[in-house]
């Protein structure tokens, strides 16, 4: 995409590169964050379910709520790329 002159003479990261990195950061960090949050809630939900199976539905819903974090990350990544 980037012309040869730019690679040789220009800065290491041009505007496009910065954008790509920003989008990558947005999706990576939010992905890790929601994974961590879901791990905590998921183990807790399993713990509650082991004692009372009726909590399966509630546990499932609570477990996927942190998924919103990574969805926001995805939105931000798309916004960065389309700007």
């Amino acid at each position: 995409m980037v012309g040869e002159e730019a690679i040789i003479g220009g800065p290491i990261l041009d505007a496009d590169g910065m954008k790509a990195l920003g989008a990558a950061l947005a999706i990576t960090v939010t992905g890790l964050a929601s994974a961590w949050a879901e791990k905590e809630i998921g183990t807790a939900a399993i713990g509650a379910m082991a004692e009372n199976e009726g909590l399966f539905g509630k546990g499932l819903i609570l477990t996927v709520i942190p998924e919103t974090i990574v969805i926001f990350g995805l939105v931000v990544a798309l916004l960065i790329n389309s700007a």
């Binding site: 905590e40 183990t43 082991a50 009372n52 909590l55």
Partner: peptide
């Protein structure tokens, strides 16, 4: 997280 919720259910 696991132990405490399980214990609370108990």
């Amino acid at each position: 997280a696991y132990a405490v919720t399980r214990v609370r259910a108990m």
